[in-house]
């Protein structure tokens, strides 16, 4: 049994400058309902049509993986397929930029993907500065998909840049994580310690606990998450767009 819910909420800096929310997220269960692919994408502030880039990248990469991942694939084949999904996403963005008579840079966006398959096989893919954390079966929290960091705080990588796609990270997650939280850097900035890289348990626990409430429904919980992400307390911590996407795997 797999459950998921998430919200992307506009940041105060974009409200003030009258820009749309640049964050997107998307997830889909496979037909077997024992597998899921989930992603978060953060459109870059400097890109004129970042919201199109992040929305297109999210939808495309998830659909591509649902269509192309086969359960009988080896780990290596899955990792190759993940990389292929990013290359295809890049090509789709290139095509869209042409259609809109834009430069592909105008669609600049980061992209993180989490994939769970039966027998607790889990994979991650990363281009940019979104993050995923997990809580394992011993209730230990860790960062499972880290930000790609350059020397500078404002350095990030875009799925619109083919070198960044080729240098992206595509890998198998070592320890099975029944609870996963994916987020854009707006959320990461106050939920993961920048000095120790440790996730704030107090922050993530309530969102994970929601899955075990007998009245869980993704619509209702997403709405509550949206209210929280729009709250003044969160806006005091970041003026950036905010995405949080949560997944529970119960086999």
């Amino acid at each position: 049994m797999i459950k998921a819910y998430g919200s992307s909420v506009i940041g105060t800096s974009h409200i003030v400058s009258n820009k749309p929310c640049h964050d997107s997220h998307y997830y889909q269960l496979f037909h077997d309902e024992k597998s899921i692919v989930a992603c978060v994408s953060d459109g870059m502030g400097s890109a004129s049509h970042a919201e199109i880039g992040s929305a297109l990248a999210s939808n495309f990469v998830v659909d591509y993986l649902v269509d192309n991942i086969k359960l009988e694939m080896t780990d290596e084949e899955i990792i190759n397929c993940l990389k292929e999904s990013y290359i295809k996403t890049h090509e789709r963005l290139e095509e869209e930029a042409k259609l809109l008579e834009l430069s592909i840079k105008d669609l600049n966006a980061t992209l993180i993907v989490f994939l769970h398959l039966p027998e607790n096989r889990q994979f991650g893919a990363q281009v940019g500065d979104c993050t995923a954390i997990g809580r394992d079966e011993d209730n230990i929290y860790s960062t499972i998909i880290e930000q790609q960091r350059g020397e500078y705080a404002n350095l990030t990588f875009s799925v619109c840049n083919i070198d960044s796609v080729m240098n992206g990270e595509y890998f198998k997650i070592k320890t099975f994580q029944p609870y996963i939280a994916m987020m854009s850097d707006g959320i990461e900035s106050f939920s993961i310690s920048s000095s120790t890289n440790e996730p704030s348990k107090l922050f993530f626990e309530p969102f994970f606990n929601a899955f075990n409430n007998e009245r869980f429904s993704d619509d209702i919980v997403s709405e509550s998450l949206k209210r929280f992400l729009s709250s003044e307390r969160v806006n005091k911590k970041t003026d950036d767009d905010k995405t949080l996407l949560l997944v529970q795997i119960k086999e």
């Binding site: 106050f190 309530p206 509550s224 929280f228």
Partner: peptide, 24 residues
């Protein structure tokens, strides 16, 4: 009653939100 089950604004306590240093 349903909404009261998922009031993240209350459930996420102030200490949960970390004070990471600003980038310089």
């Amino acid at each position: 009653e349903l909404q009261n089950d998922f009031e993240f604004e209350k459930e996420v306590v102030d200490e949960a939100l970390l004070d990471n240093p600003e980038p310089r």
